[in-house]
């Protein structure tokens, strides 16, 4: 039976979706449209007058060494976070798959970290990695300068990557576990009969069959790291020390709202948007289509 509502009045369906459409319009299309407009104009900080300047904002960005430094740290953060989150989630899922079969309770419990707001995670990890408290203060006492994310850019980046991947691990784990449980049991049993031990089976059978899940998660993790990392950076490092964690979303915020360069920030946000669109395109075009076995 087809489950499909039919409406007599042609207006009613539109009215029903109107609230959703309004929300999407007000919080997505309108700001995005404005961002595009601002990116090609020059806005006076104190209001009044807006001037069409063409590609000038973009040219200024592309010659800025700060901008390229920001792109670089964004890439380090995104790839570092995604790699760590995927590898750890995959290992957890592989080992738990051997014990837990189809337990829904586990999945719910393990997806919670993903639902925790980034600033809250940021606060917790700031305390965990604080150079003047806990384990790290002891280590610093033994060997001064061993760990200080407020002074050392590399330390700050490592701290951010840990916090960011902690959240993504939960998400990735759920997908990997679901993927593993959808691999027919006889396949791993056949490999066991063929003489492969547990690690060999993971390498030869389970991991290759997880390839579709793997590529899906790479794209999702990268997108997430590029866009959703603002909360973490703002709480934990504020982009410092010395711009070492000034990743693209955070730079957009600080240029626009602290430096009051709306036009430059708008141009940067357009570039970031295009990057995300490109990743999404890759996801749909290649990953979803190609990575299928039968």
């Amino acid at each position: 039976m087809e489950r499909r509502a039919t409406f007599r009045a042609p207006l009613l369906p539109w009215l029903l979706v109107l609230p959703q459409l309004l929300i999407v319009f007000v919080f997505f299309y309108w700001p995005s449209g404005e961002a595009f407009r601002w990116a090609f104009t020059l806005e006076q900080p104190w209001g009044g007058g807006r001037e069409w300047v063409g590609w000038q904002n973009f040219l200024e960005i592309f010659v800025s060494t700060h901008y390229w430094a920001s792109v670089r740290v964004s890439m380090i953060y995104a790839f570092g976070t995604s790699a760590l989150a995927i590898v750890i989630a995959l290992l957890l899922a592989l080992f738990i798959d051997r014990e837990v079969r189809g337990s829904r309770g586990w999945r719910v419990a393990l997806i919670w970290p993903y639902a925790v707001a980034a600033p809250a995670i940021g606060m917790i990890f700031r305390f965990v990695f604080d150079a003047r408290a806990g384990v790290f203060s002891l280590l610093n006492a033994v060997s001064p300068g061993f760990w200080d994310p407020s002074m050392n850019g590399t330390h700050a980046m490592v701290m951010l990557i840990f916090a960011g991947s902690w959240q993504l691990i939960a998400y990735n784990f759920v997908f990997f576990l679901a993927g593993l449980q959808s691999i027919p049991r006889p396949l791993t049993e056949a490999a066991a009969m063929d003489g492969a031990g547990p690690l060999r089976r993971m390498r030869d059978i389970q991991v290759p069959l997880l390839a579709p899940t793997f590529f899906f998660l790479v794209v999702i993790n990268l997108t997430d790291s590029f866009t959703n990392s603002f909360g973490l950076v703002d709480i934990m490092t504020g982009g410092g020390p010395a711009r070492a964690t000034d990743i693209m979303v955070y730079k957009i915020y600080s240029d626009g709202f602290k430096g009051l360069d709306y036009s430059g920030a708008a141009a940067q946000s357009v570039i970031l948007m295009l990057l995300v669109v490109a990743l999404t395109f890759i996801q749909f075009r290649f990953v979803e289509r190609k990575m299928r076995y039968r």
Partner: peptide
């Protein structure tokens, strides 16, 4: 029963 051939 379902042959369990490695699909990849």
């Amino acid at each position: 029963q379902n042959y369990a051939l490695y699909p990849h």
